[in-house]
């Protein structure tokens, strides 16, 4: 008798824990979202690398390598935006598919909270980076992207799969290291937004979604 009731209690506590978790965290984030975002980031970085190579060739006569023409920075800015929104859309598609499979509402209390908590550091970072771009601190852009994104992920990890925190640590550390290798920003950017995303996404897909 005693044994049965304590087993029931354990089961009850497990149910409570599960519902608490499901109601406060958005757990449908797909690993494939990470892989897709990573691939787009790598493609974007490759295009940027090619463009920068071409550009510095053209301008060697007029300006030092560190100063960048308005047109060129505009081009990079547009490329950055395309990569950002492309990655966002791809990430959304795979997560949407997964949430449909699990029968979870994609626009619920948990996903709203996740979005809010990831957006705040990202918007602050976006404004900061825009200002860097305007004032010509081009070398600080890649480290800033990584640092703000890392902080956003660490903050958001409380509201989604807790492993997101480790992706955040990775981005943050890469960003801080890249502060000491100004001029190699693009490589760090590609490593963070490209490789780390793909590695994270693959691990998560293997862990939770592989059938």
């Amino acid at each position: 008798m005693q044994k049965i009731t304590s087993e029931q209690s354990l089961k009850e506590i497990r149910d409570i824990k599960q519902i608490m978790e499901r109601s406060s965290r958005f757990l449908s984030l797909s690993g494939l979202s990470g892989v897709a975002a990573g691939c787009i980031a790598l493609a974007g970085a490759a295009i940027a690398y090619y463009e920068i190579g071409k550009n510095s060739f053209d301008e060697t006569d007029y300006s030092s390598r560190s100063s960048v023409s308005d047109l060129f920075s505009m081009k990079l800015f547009v490329l950055g935006m395309i990569v950002f929104f492309g990655a966002l859309v791809m990430a959304f598609i795979f997560t949407y598919i997964r949430s449909r499979k699990q029968g979870v509402q994609i626009w619920g209390a948990a996903s709203k909270r996740l979005l809010l908590n990831i957006s705040l550091p990202l918007i602050a970072g976006g404004i900061f980076i825009l200002k860097l771009l305007q004032t010509g601190y081009i070398g600080l852009i890649a480290p800033s992207c990584l640092i703000f994104y890392g902080l956003a992920l660490i903050n958001a990890s409380k509201y989604t799969l807790s492993e997101v925190r480790y992706l955040g640590y990775g981005q943050l550390i890469l960003g801080l290291i890249s502060l000491y290798f100004i001029g190699y920003g693009l490589f760090f950017w590609a490593a963070g937004f490209g490789l780390l995303h793909i590695i994270y996404g693959t691990i998560m897909w293997n862990k939770y979604e592989k059938e």
Partner: peptide, 8 residues
């Protein structure tokens, strides 16, 4: 019990 778990 489920309702309460979610609401707290």
């Amino acid at each position: 019990l489920g309702i309460m778990s979610a609401l707290v």
